[in-house]
């Protein structure tokens, strides 16, 4: 049996590869980066929502199942540059910096994931211009290193604001969808900051809070136990305070129906999730239909969210839409099972 190709080494791809190996299928795991673990590893996620479990505790076991398995062939710093449908499976061309190689695979799992929205595109917030306007991923890294300071002067901030839905639910940047994670991750970050630095005030500016299902608990606790403050209304622009040392968040408090201009030391943008570069490339390579949002489209998403409808091609994780790690892991399992069934026929 030719190996099953798993494209992408994030949570979904790791999960798929591990399950395929457990089912006894030879597995070829291809990752464009030089490491496995996807976005959580790339950006050094700190604690994971909603249980506030350190990211390593989740990513560690996922990685070690794959790293130590003899029937998983891991190819890092490698891209698929060509794919052709064969009577059974695909023939793909793998490319590294200095070599190309043609391989026959019996099925394919696309776990190509998402990219964080480039917050520079929402230019009203001054990301990339004002050093103290940060992105989700930079704050994760900061929390991971346990060093919450203003990049501009290295001093600890007294007030931090989170702005939700940056690059999500916004036709002006072409992203009308909800990223599903922005609310809970922002709240988690605010809680993490308050846990460690109760002297820092944390404000969350929101238009809706979507801590769906059991995640609602974290939202409530963030107020009850950690004193995170919530203001209903969006910040429309970030400017510099007089003197240039502080940021001013300009917005409307839509409950009180009045404009607000509040100084902050740091502002965090809940940057949304967009189809990843790998996902866009995979769509082209494998001729996969994409929705108006640019994510891969399962044939019948409610019946089987991991089936592409194309022969031998399956999806897992955020390649089909914004997703939390547990959902990505589950889809990895489902895609592994479906790919295995196809490959064995």
């Amino acid at each position: 049996m030719n190996p099953v190709l798993v494209l992408g080494g994030g949570p979904a791809g790791l999960s798929a590869a591990a399950e395929l190996a457990a089912l006894g299928a030879p597995t070829l795991l291809v990752e464009r980066e030089s490491y496995l673990g996807g976005n959580p590893q790339r950006w050094h996620y700190s604690l994971l929502a909603p249980d506030l479990r350190p990211a390593q505790e989740v990513m560690g076991p996922l990685l070690s199942r794959v790293e130590n398995h003899p029937s998983i062939e891991r190819r890092l710093s490698t891209s698929v540059v060509r794919a052709e449908l064969r009577p059974k499976g695909y023939q793909v061309v793998l490319k590294t910096q200095d070599s190309t190689e043609t391989r026959d695979v019996s099925a394919v799992v696309l776990a190509t994931g998402f990219d964080h929205f480039d917050s520079r595109r929402k230019y009203e917030y001054g990301y990339g211009r004002y050093p103290d306007v940060l992105d989700f991923k930079e704050v994760e890294q900061m929390l991971h290193e346990d060093r919450v300071v203003r990049p501009s002067d290295g001093k600890p901030p007294r007030r931090i604001a989170w702005i939700l839905c940056v690059g999500s639910r916004d036709v002006q940047v072409g992203n009308p969808w909800c990223c599903r994670m922005g609310c809970v991750v922002s709240i988690k970050q605010a809680v993490e900051v308050r846990q460690r630095h109760p002297e820092i005030d944390a404000y969350v500016y929101y238009m809706d809070i979507r801590t769906y299902g059991l995640w609602e608990d974290l939202y409530w606790k963030s107020m009850q136990e950690y004193g995170v403050k919530f203001v209903r209304g969006r910040i429309g622009a970030v400017t510099l305070a007089e003197g240039g040392s502080r940021l001013i968040a300009t917005g409307e408090d839509t409950i009180l129906s009045r404009p607000t201009e509040v100084p902050f030391d740091m502002i965090v943008l809940a940057s949304g999730m967009e189809p990843g570069t790998g996902t866009k490339e995979a769509a082209t390579l494998f001729g996969v239909p994409v929705g108006p949002e640019g994510f891969l489209t399962p044939r019948v998403s409610d019946l089987n969210p991991v089936d592409s409808g194309l022969p031998g091609l399956f999806f897992a994780g955020a390649a089909t839409g914004p997703k939390a790690i547990p959902d990505a892991v589950t889809e990895g399992m489902g895609a592994a099972l479906r790919a295995f069934q196809y490959a064995r026929l």
Partner: peptide
């Protein structure tokens, strides 16, 4: 189904601030 090139075009258009749903 869209061809690979058409898909690339769709994705690129999104990247150049093409508006999403609602008003086309």
């Amino acid at each position: 189904m869209l061809s690979a090139n058409e898909i690339r075009k769709v994705v690129e258009e999104r990247n150049v601030h093409q508006r999403g749903t609602g008003k086309k």
